[in-house]
Design a protein around this nucleic acid. Structure first.
Lengths: 246, 246
DNA sequence: CGTTCTTTTGATAGCTCTCAAGTCGCGTGG
DNA sequence: CCACGCGACTTGAGAGCTATCAAAAGAACG
């Protein structure tokens, strides 16, 4: 029962923590922003408490783009379907991360987004956020950086790396991202099924199973179902080096 | 001698055409923008005529980020070096396309950029462009879209596609991008060596050679050294379908 | 005209996929 | 409480695609 929420720090119960670890930090909070601007920022929160049950779609490919969402809780999977209906997983979005940035260009979502577990979102009107960005240089800069950050994110998929390298990089990526948001970097739940991991890493599910078994046999991880502990991060890092480059 | 410049439309000789097919269209041109703003836009061009010879670096990994560049002529290759010094090609930038967007986040270039042939760039100060974007909503919007567009660009590399699918998608991508800028979509030069294509597609150079030979044998292309003609775009499209999805 | 780099071609090995079967966990209903 | 069934996961054996190794042919350069 190693649900991630169980590892949430004490302070995380309230909204304050969620926002302090969110990618939009300093946007929702008052830090160094004019008071009457804060009111406008608050007004951006279109539907602060939108919730989704496991298996529900947040948006689907082709849906008109109007708002950006930040994940407050749960895991969101983005994916596309090819001509033959086969799924291609594009990524997983953890608490504090943003979903939908790739929709700005075409003004419609280029992929589907699904809740892998109960999900809570903060939604922002992108139009209003743009208007505000023109008034607050720091906000504009933050948006530019957020967008820029995502451009180089495909490294995990792009290289012709071995199954071990991909898996190590994947686990390490999860670890670091959880750590950044205040969760344990050494123990967390794989909130997605093996098939989704395999699909994301462009491996067969059987290969994922075999690699995870080897990692366990080698003492790198301890894993029971989806409950994962990283025992030897150093080894993981050296395995993932070709993928992550640092 | 099928140099691309030889296929440049008549109108392309002057600056007008170059700019009309550039990713920053409507930024350099006066269309619908206040006249005294145009002066400011002009002022953005830091070094309009910066040129690079084949083999010269435009920037290197770690260089401080200050400006974005649009390719006016030539081809730019971006790449990184891993721990062992092996090169990893990230992409090719053709005339009219933008280089350096992924540097905004970290304020320094995360990769190297090399001129594969004589290159002419338009450089823009990103700081000044941001300031101007706050004044011109359309410019801000254009920048957001430009950034968003690049986020989903890694599809060519990300999937576990066959060598044929990758190559077909690569050739088709070049064709479409050249067409978009006013060049011939059916005949152009591969401005990069086979090794770079192989590296970019995550294939061995030998595999690239074999695939190109098969394409030629099958009447899909006609190729002599780097002079390439696409004879059967329909077949290319059906091959590339799993990669490009349309 | 030799040197060097690029490209091509051939033979072999290896990693991962595919196919197939079996195991485990868990909710359902008897 | 236990049998059942379903889905997720694991495990095993063989095939295929591409990388690797090796070598030669071809173009570019001085």
């Amino acid at each position: 029962m190693a649900v991630n929420s169980a590892r949430l720090p004490e302070a995380a119960a309230g909204r304050a923590h969620s926002c302090s670890t969110c990618a939009f930090t300093n946007l929702c909070r008052n830090d160094g922003i004019d008071e009457n601007v804060v009111a406008q920022v608050e007004a951006l929160l279109v539907d602060e408490t939108s919730q989704y049950a496991e298996g529900q779609h947040i948006f689907r490919e082709g849906d008109p783009f109007d708002s950006i969402a930040a994940v407050r809780g749960g895991t969101v999977k983005t994916y596309v379907l090819d001509r033959e209906g086969r799924e291609q997983v594009l990524g997983f979005h953890l608490p504090g991360e943003v979903v939908g940035l790739n929709a700005i260009h075409s003004q419609s979502f280029p992929c589907n987004a699904l809740a892998l577990e109960p999900v809570v979102l903060c939604r922002f009107s992108f139009r209003r956020m743009s208007e505000l960005a023109a008034l607050i240089p720091d906000l504009q800069s933050r948006l530019f950086r957020l967008l820029s950050e995502d451009i180089g994110k495909a490294a995990l998929l792009s290289g012709d790396f071995s199954a071990d390298e991909r898996m190590a990089a994947f686990l390490l990526s999860l670890s670091r991202r959880y750590a950044r948001r205040g969760f344990s970097p050494t123990r967390f739940n794989l909130t997605m099924p093996r098939t989704d991991i395999a699909n994301y890493l462009r491996l067969a599910p059987e290969t994922v199973s075999r690699v995870l078994r080897r990692f366990r046999d080698d003492g790198i991880t301890q894993i029971d179902r989806r409950d994962l502990r990283l025992l030897d991060i150093g080894r993981l890092e050296s395995l993932a080096l070709p993928v992550l480059r640092h």
